[in-house]
Design a binder for these strands. Structure first.
Lengths: 325, 325
DNA sequence: CTGAAAGCGCTTACAG
DNA sequence: CTGAAAGCGCTTACAG
């Protein structure tokens, strides 16, 4: 390339890196650009990475890709990254929220830092071993592993759900709990119990369920047909579970929301795909991604980003109404 | 590292690369491994990439991440990649199926090849400019851009839908067509028209819709309330659209499937989340990813992979029944 | 069985 | 304003 343009390697580097102003003549720069265009020349990133010792690439580790939440987190992260000349590469951890295999062996990308969303802190030891700056999203803020944290106010979202249901007169409330060991779901369970008991109501039953429609359906069946008076509301950890819960209610001959109110969490596309549309908690997923990338960039710049907690909103739709009788 | 282990750089390289057998003594190899463990040493990938001229990493370009189909394609591709010591990095093209910005500028990873799923061929010119081997998934097999292609038998899936509906006595069928310019949707439209007209039926109406529940809903409203006799069946390009169509029917006081049958496509989680569950076409997404990665590996090995077409299956559930009257 | 040396393609002082 | 040189950390012949 340098030969074709009739200049030195150094000059090519300056021009391609847009650092030539005041150091290379306009004429020479133009010649380099022309030659690059004709040759389809692209700087070898591996060489640049080696020389610079950084890659301007971040890895976003997520538990699974089947959830729009993570897609939106990525969108937000990628936007902020682009503004800073960085890129984001996705690593869907093959084992859900469990131990993430070393992404370096897997993605083989060289990375400047990693952002992990909704992962168990323990699941990230392999990644930590790389010594890379780590920003944790939607994870236990008390864990000291991360150089930065961005959280959703999950507890508040759960409290909003509880208050909404209490205001509608519900007192017997069951919880369809995601059968996933992560901070975000532990918070939901704890906040729900606290909010209800402090108001004189109670979680009359808690049913664990994997994050699928079918699992939500059978958990809801158990919750609605178990011993004791039937719950009048089902609080679900996730919209997918809530969709299953609505189907279960219908199969039992119960109307949603007249006989049973159902709430979701996340506000995925599924929340409005089902009938009735789900009352749920909307999570600012893109903002989470944006804040996460901003935090990582600060860490990379040697700064110490303050922890961020983002508010969430209850979206009241048609799956909740006044408790029967 | 070499200094700590008391051996040369070359020896370290041999041991870390697992190429030491018969060339380095067991004793020395063990010493290297121990030192590596203690130091938390990891070979610098940028240096290795530079030296080797390859990265054993493939890029998977997808239109968007909000769809499980692509998540499953990735899962399949990653599995095959891992078996061959490769990794797969995801690149969700920011503009849907439209022009993909140069992923090299964005992901900054150095790549051996790219796999593109469901993208318009024209959208990949930037990527092609990199001169990397390209495998296209779920894309026009007639385009010569790709070194390998893996397709779904979308036309056959559409024909299965048509035959199913015809057998149920439907003759007035409307099409909710995804408002996305890609091969996969063009095939659906063409195959549907052909299958119906050759059986003496017809697509009485075709309504374009973006790939959201809300868009599906309003497109279905248009299809069901337009001039002429009402269609008895709605063939939707996608499960999301079908979910919207079911809601539209219900709002118009029509029962699904008794008054209108509705079919989806893809068999996403949403297909069983809604009530009634959707009759739809199941796509072997993971197999698509696996076959795509296998094809890329062949190309990388200098072979010429044969085009693959994977069969798809109609899944009959509760959203279709005999035509009314 | 082990080490010294070359070279992958960049970027960045440094010299002219 | 431009070029020659060093060096990032590997891997791979090659020599011993």
């Amino acid at each position: 390339m340098a030969r074709v343009a009739g200049v030195s390697q150094a000059t090519v580097s300056l021009v391609m890196g847009d650092k030539w102003r005041g150091r290379v003549s306009e004429r020479t720069a133009e010649a380099v650009r022309t030659a690059a265009r004709e040759l389809g020349y692209r700087p070898n990133l591996a060489a640049r990475n080696l020389r610079l010792g950084l890659t301007r690439t971040a890895l976003l580790v997520v538990p699974a890709l089947t959830n729009e939440f993570f897609a939106r987190v990525h969108t937000g992260a990628a936007r902020v990254a682009a503004e800073h000349g960085m890129g984001v590469v996705l690593y869907p951890s093959p084992e859900g929220t469990g131990p993430a295999r070393d992404p370096f062996a897997s993605s083989r990308a060289t990375l400047d830092g990693v952002i992990a969303s909704s992962m168990a802190a323990e699941a990230l030891t392999d990644i930590r071993a790389g010594g890379l700056p780590l920003v944790m999203l939607d994870s236990d803020p008390a864990r000291p592993e991360a150089a930065g944290t961005v959280n959703l106010d999950i507890a508040d979202g759960t409290r909003q759900v509880a208050r909404h249901l209490l205001a509608l007169g519900h007192r017997r409330i069951a919880h369809l709990a995601a059968d996933v060991d992560s901070w975000t779901f532990r918070v939901r369970a704890r906040a729900l119990t606290e909010a209800l008991t402090s108001a004189g109501a109670a979680v009359v039953r808690s049913e664990p369920a994997a994050l699928t429609v079918a699992a939500g359906l059978s958990a809801a069946e158990r919750a609605l047909t178990g011993p004791g008076p039937r719950p009048t509301a089902l609080v679900c950890d996730d919209d997918v579970l809530a969709a299953g819960a609505c189907k279960a209610a219908r199969r039992l001959g119960l109307r949603v929301p007249d006989d049973v109110s159902v709430t979701g969490f996340d506000d995925l596309a599924m929340a409005t795909a089902v009938d009735p549309e789900l009352t749920t908690v909307r999570l600012p997923a893109e903002s989470v991604g944006e804040a996460g990338m901003r935090a990582l960039i600060k860490v990379l710049d040697g700064e110490d980003p303050a922890p961020v907690t983002l508010p969430v909103d209850l979206i009241v739709r048609d799956s909740t109404t006044a408790a029967p009788r």
